[in-house]
Design a protein around this nucleic acid. Structure first.
Lengths: 340, 340
DNA sequence: GACCGCACCCAAAGCGCTTTGAGAAACGTT
DNA sequence: AACGTTTCTCAAAGCGCTTTGGGTGCGGTC
């Protein structure tokens, strides 16, 4: 069933039917109603490609997942982010298109996405410290919002980020206030912007209290469970082991917890752990009583907000860049306690 | 840059340029080369909407995520599945379109997806025991592959599934062979087909050995960490607690492990745990030494295979339904041991 | 009765591509 | 020289929609 058939069925022109369906005022209410009813009954819905061709809008948003040799892992937070964003999109009648892009031909890929014209805007995931995509997309004139930031990029651009620096500063201070002096950082990959910010904040908080950051207590890798386990196990067997851990994700923190248990220690008493918590649906940090003391920031909410920002940019093309910094909550759980 | 401009630039007709780009034989090698070079230089890539309109193919695959009140959680395995499928798609020049569909208006949604015409086929996620989508999509004539199966549906249709029954049967027998008699099942939601199959297999394996399944040792919920923790904690405080646990996902198993530790018991010695492991990138079950004894089946691989099947169905429209059953490996880790 | 304005409706062009049906050019064959 | 073949190229139609630039018919005004 297409427009033409629907129009013939109704003995109207395609124009009139199209206008009736799209809410233009040039058509009487009676006609509009008839048209809407028929469309409903005959299960008509317009062909998106044709509509896109005619209007120049795709009614779709691109989410580009960088795939690289360095870390081919799919971001575990991606699902929740998309779920949040998707909710906003579907209200506005937009769809999500996902492209996996090898970062070897990133430039080519983004150019092609632009030319293919099946998205009206892009959400940029996983920004690095110095991310070339921002300049590229600006040049291409394709609306975009970055989830995160790129510290080294000085161009103005739209982004939505969690205040990772503030969160990790507070977390470090929290442990310091409890009397901890040997505090380890189990961080994500530090060419990723968020991880870099976290380390800077952690080091800053330490030095502010006159403590020199100890390289033996800092790790930077992909945030898996195993990584948390190994790092913590190794550090706990040092001559002078840490009494507190700052961890970059719940999954990794779970590995840290495992290492602590295996070392015969108790988390929250012998060793304190504080983690960042993206508030993922399948990995809640406890219901009523949080397990981990954590800096919490909902990635799902971030998705919703980023989507709204992008839709706004698409609606008004000349819009100035939008930015939004979300503060993380500090959640006190049972994984921290005073230093022994 | 569009076809017309490119053709003008080359002093050729659109037809010739189009044919040159799409590898038709009616154009000389010299011309083709010239065209390709120019396209490269001028960064031309065809408008997907227009191409789609003209060819009737969208070169995109739809992944529909059911969202319901019953479980609005985003499937944590979705990311890995998409990553696998995406790899296959991008080789074939296809893209991924994601739709979040509230299962209240499922029928409407699938009809509209079909009419909108921006996907050539669909991967159906999260099939229920009796899933109306299969009949619907068959009727609509839209190619689709189900990730999983729907036991109650007798129509022939294409699916790719892990042999959940066999996996859980083996897992149960493994524990039985170790001397366990009180074996608990911490299952997923049992209106989901995979979870149902797992329970049936578990009960079957028990009764085959003359053990009556005990309802007090069976749970069925969304597979979160907390759920694993609570269920295990409760069961361990029973008068007659289980000595073995069969768990439906790694995340949930981690919760079970936590409960075991908190009860002052040791996993693998006092209590055995065996879990299903989807081999997710961010939640590897150990590198060399697996942590959990597990039935392992890579969801990423499933994504790749399902994508291949779907592309095949799209290529040859009259194709008979394709099916594929993947066997899970039984991985022996340190979370199991002889019953005390 | 002529004129105007309004409400309603339509035909046709155009979005950027593919593809059909056919023509021109170059070449060999008789 | 006339004719077929092969190779290369093109103009134009069509995919399903929106939107422009009118038209038609009706009631009201003078």
């Amino acid at each position: 069933m297409n427009l033409k058939q629907l129009a013939e069925h109704l003995n109207l022109s395609q124009t009139t039917v199209s206008r009736a369906l799209n809410g233009y005022p040039e058509v009487s209410e009676k006609t509009r109603e008839k048209v809407l009813r028929a469309a409903q009954e005959l299960n008509y819905s317009p062909n998106a490609r044709a509509k896109g061709l005619a209007t120049g809008r795709a009614h779709a948003i691109g989410h580009v997942l960088p795939i690289s040799d360095q870390h081919e892992m799919v971001n575990p937070i991606f699902g929740d982010f998309i779920a949040g964003a998707g909710q906003t999109y579907s209200k506005a009648g937009y769809e999500v298109v996902i492209s996996l892009v090898d970062d070897k031909d990133e430039e080519q890929a983004y150019r092609s996405i632009r030319n293919r014209g099946n998205v009206d805007g892009i959400i940029v995931h996983g920004p690095r410290m110095t991310d070339s995509r921002i300049a590229l997309l600006t040049e291409l004139g394709l609306p975009f919002v970055v989830h995160g930031r790129a510290s080294q990029v000085s161009l103005p651009y739209s982004w939505l980020d969690t205040n990772n620096g503030r969160a990790f500063q507070r977390a470090t201070e929290f442990l310091l206030d409890l009397g901890h002096r040997r505090i380890a950082l189990i961080n994500g990959l530090e060419f990723m912007d968020f991880a870099h910010r976290r380390r800077v904040a952690y080091e800053g908080a330490l030095t502010d209290r006159g403590i020199a950051p100890d390289p033996a207590l800092m790790r930077s890798e992909e945030m898996t469970e195993i990584y948390g386990y190994r790092s913590a196990a190794e550090m706990l067997s040092l001559a002078n082991p840490p009494t507190g851990f700052l961890v970059s994700s719940m999954i990794t923190a779970i590995g840290v917890r495992r290492a602590i248990h295996e070392a015969g220690l108790e988390m929250g008493r012998d060793v304190s752990v504080i983690t960042h918590d993206d508030d993922l649906g399948y990995l809640r940090n406890g219901h009523d009583v949080p397990i981990f003391t954590a800096t919490r920031s909902s990635v799902r909410l971030a998705g919703m907000r980023a989507a709204e920002m992008l839709l706004e940019l698409i609606r008004t093309p000349a819009h100035a860049p939008l930015t939004q910094l979300m503060e993380a909550e500090l959640i006190i759980g049972s994984s921290t306690g005073p230093a022994q």
